[in-house]
Design a protein around this nucleic acid. Structure first.
Length: 708
DNA sequence: CTTGCTCTAGTTAGG
DNA sequence: CTAGAGCAAG
């Protein structure tokens, strides 16, 4: 194998295939190259592809890795397991459901289903989760339960008074137990179960452990700094005594502590695996020196980290620019016109430019200005396609047609668009169904026999029942669920429903296009099933697979979308979703106290008690900086309109950690400021101030506060 | 049961 | 300023 394209430490990381290995891969240090070369090297050394597991955090990352590997080793790349922890979990649970205490056909709840369940528990337990007196955001509860599950804290332990620190802990602990019970009674698991059940089973069952340790001999993990406790346990049990575990990551890019990731996993890797080797990749092939200088000088201010720096491998480069605006509109205006200039005058393609920000809401203003300028852009992140309401509605109908026993789907579909079926009616139906041991859908088909259902609800149920029967008969007649779903959606005029729900025709058309995409992927799935039928003679498409992969690979249809939408687009992204990506030109907007670091992580400003959170914000800023290849602009405003009022804004403390080589530009005075200029201005100002003080003028104090 | 009004709170994301 | 949720009225 040809390793000549790699530097010394990269080569070391590729060739060290036995025993525990920690690869500390700085931003832009050729991490993916190392991983793919390493797998290719392992295959060359005769390790069977089926016994290799390569894990990452997103499907996209896994797919890209597989593509790159396929270029190196060909079809064999398809034989090894490459995917997310969650998809590994699904695969293991499907292979041996009994080991994990789940039914053969378990279903996977998505975020929306979980929310719905938490809401209904809150209602049933009589907890006012929102309102004037006490408010409990279901989202915060879901998040707590998720954190507990990943830390192996049981419902009983969660209610321990010693652990409870806030109202939220108390409420969440109260809901946690019933939540787990409901999951079990539905034969369903949530996303967290896909990981922590694996960990628990491997820990507790010797036979399961032996089976899986025999199945997999070598494990690789990318983005290791983002692993949580449950994921760590899975790894530890999976690799067993052989400890053929290679983890690749960068503690300086750990930005997911708030969702349970443990930086300790990467900081203390050699504590858990004492025989571990550590290899640092510090050569940076992405960014120009001035950008890396910024990155290095910001990140050294963090305490808990592996000691390393980014060493520039590309020469030259313009200075990084810090841009000062008077207010928000001026900031976005400047950014968009600078982008326009880059594109129109300097010949930079749109896809070479990104605007990064801390929170999604900051995108809107930029979007509006870009639209005005007629510049094409795309927004990364945001709601995943399968989380969108319209798509979920359509999907609920599809599931109802195919699996009428899927209660969650039926519940959703039955009232879209509203058919006058409310909580009371549902309750009656469920009671009826449970007494007769029939499904909710069957109870609906027999609605006229259910006690107490009258008037509007009754006719609504009748219409729904007929609709489903109609769709099912169309499906059987045509042999295509996609076609039947189209007809069904047509009948209920879902399209008009979507139109009515949103204001602008444009937004509605956009929402509807997501439904079209769903229909498209249903039809493609059926097409594939028909083709493979010739070979395998299976009677029907395996819908379980389709729905399962829908919950797991939510953005598998996104890719074609990205490609079809052209290459000229500017990218708008949060710094979180920008991780792993790069652009020649990057703008980071809103570099201010309160935004970055965000005010929520920095509540007690005087005592730096929770400095860890501020350190995570600093890492996030570091991630943002290291996305830039050639040019970097950091912008901020001195005041902003917030809740209708003009508020003064202070520069982010991170800006003050930047080196002197950074150029400063003030939009309103159109002045470029170097450090020397600022210093001479400050000197002049101080001289003036001294004069004023001598004269005993009160005004001097006011001026002092307006300085910088 | 639905609709429309009023109030309030307001990170970050993925499977 | 907006989105989402509760609440009161139809």
């Amino acid at each position: 194998m040809d390793l000549s394209g790699l530097n010394e430490s990269q080569r070391a990381a590729v060739c060290c295939i036995e025993g525990p290995l920690l690869v500390l891969a700085g931003a832009g240090s050729g991490k993916t190259r190392v991983i793919t070369h390493r797998i290719a090297f392992m295959l060359e050394r005769g390790i069977r592809p089926e016994s290799i597991v390569a894990l990452s955090f997103t499907n996209k990352a896994a797919d890209e890795m597989r593509e790159r590997l396929e270029k190196m080793v060909g079809k064999r790349a398809r034989e090894l397991f490459m995917g997310t922890f969650h998809s590994l979990g699904v695969r293991m649970m499907r292979a041996r459901p009994a080991d994990f205490g789940v039914p053969k056909k378990f279903s996977i709840l998505d975020q929306g289903d979980v929310y719905g369940m938490i809401r209904s528990i809150l209602r049933d337990e009589g907890i006012h989760y929102a309102g004037a007196d006490r408010r409990f955001d279901p989202g915060a509860i879901v998040q707590r339960i998720s954190l507990w599950k990943n830390d192996f804290i049981t419902p009983a332990q969660a209610t321990d008074p010693m652990r409870i620190e806030s109202d939220y802990d108390e409420i969440a602990a109260e809901v946690y137990g019933p939540y787990e019970e409901r999951l079990a009674s539905l034969g369903a698991v949530d996303f967290d179960d896909l990981v922590c059940r694996i960990a628990r089973t491997l820990r507790d069952s010797e036979s399961a452990r032996e089976h899986w340790q025999g199945r997999f001999s070598h494990v690789l993990v990318d983005e290791y700094q983002d692993t949580n406790k449950a994921q760590f346990e899975v790894l530890r049990e999976l690799v067993g005594a052989r400890q053929n575990l290679c983890v690749v990551g960068d503690d300086d890019q750990a930005i997911y502590g708030w969702r349970g990731a443990k930086v300790a996993n990467i900081l203390g890797f050699d504590m858990y695996f004492p025989s571990a080797r550590t290899i640092k990749l510090e050569e940076n092939y992405r960014s120009r020196a001035p950008i890396l200088e910024c990155a290095n000088s910001v990140i050294v201010n963090n305490q808990g980290r592996h000691d390393k720096v980014l060493l520039p491998q590309r020469g030259g480069g313009e200075p990084v620019t810090e841009v000062l605006a008077e207010d928000g509109p001026q900031e976005t205006n400047w950014v968009t016109s600078r982008i326009r200039r880059l594109i129109k005058e300097e010949g930079v393609p749109g896809h070479a430019i990104a605007v990064l920000y801390r929170s999604t809401r900051q995108a809107r203003a930029v979007e509006e200005r870009l639209q005005e300028h007629g510049l094409a852009y795309r927004v990364l992140g945001g709601q995943a396609m399968y989380d969108k309401k319209q798509v979920k509605d359509a999907l609920a109908y599809l599931k109802t047609m195919i699996y009428p026993s899927d209660e969650i789907a039926v519940r959703r579909a039955m009232n879209v668009p509203s058919r006058g079926i409310g909580a009371k009616t549902l309750e009656r139906l469920l009671a009826h169904a449970s007494v007769r041991r029939i499904s909710l859908m069957d109870a609906i088909h027999n609605a006229e026999r259910v006690e107490g259902i009258t008037g509007r609800a009754r006719t609504g149920l009748q219409r729904f029942s007929e609709l489903i029967r109609f769709a099912q008969s169309r499906m059987h007649a045509s042999g295509s669920a996609g076609l039947a779903l189209r007809e069904l959606l047509d009948r209920i005029a879902l399209r008009d429903h979507v139109m009515r729900e949103v204001g602008s025709a444009e937004a509605a058309a956009h929402r509807w296009s997501d439904v079209e995409r769903l229909l498209g992927s249903v039809e493609r799935f059926e097409q594939r099933a028909r083709e493979s039928k010739k070979k395998s003679r299976s009677k029907r498409p395996r819908w379980n697979e389709f729905f399962g992969s829908m919950a797991i690979d939510r953005d598998k249809d996104k890719k074609s979308d990205d490609e079809s939408s052209g290459r000229g687009q500017i990218t708008l992204a949060t710094m979180h979703s920008a991780k792993g990506l790069e652009w020649p030109v990057v703008f980071i907007i809103g570099c201010e106290e309160g935004i970055m670091p965000h005010k929520r992580v920095d509540a007690p400003r005087i005592s730096d008690a929770i400095a860890g959170d501020v350190e995570e914000e600093r890492r996030l800023f570091y991630v943002g900086i290291t996305r830039a290849r050639d040019r970097l602009f950091l912008t901020r405003a001195t005041s902003r309109v917030e809740r209708g009022r003009q508020i003064k804004r202070l520069p982010s403390r991170f800006l003050e950690e930047l080196p002197d080589s950074v150029e400063r530009y003030d939009i309103s005075t159109e002045e470029s400021l170097t450090v020397e200029k600022i210093e001479s201005m400050a000197d002049a100002f101080l001289a003036k101030l001294a004069l004023a003080r001598e004269a005993g003028e009160e005004e001097a104090k006011r001026r002092r506060s307006s300085r910088r």
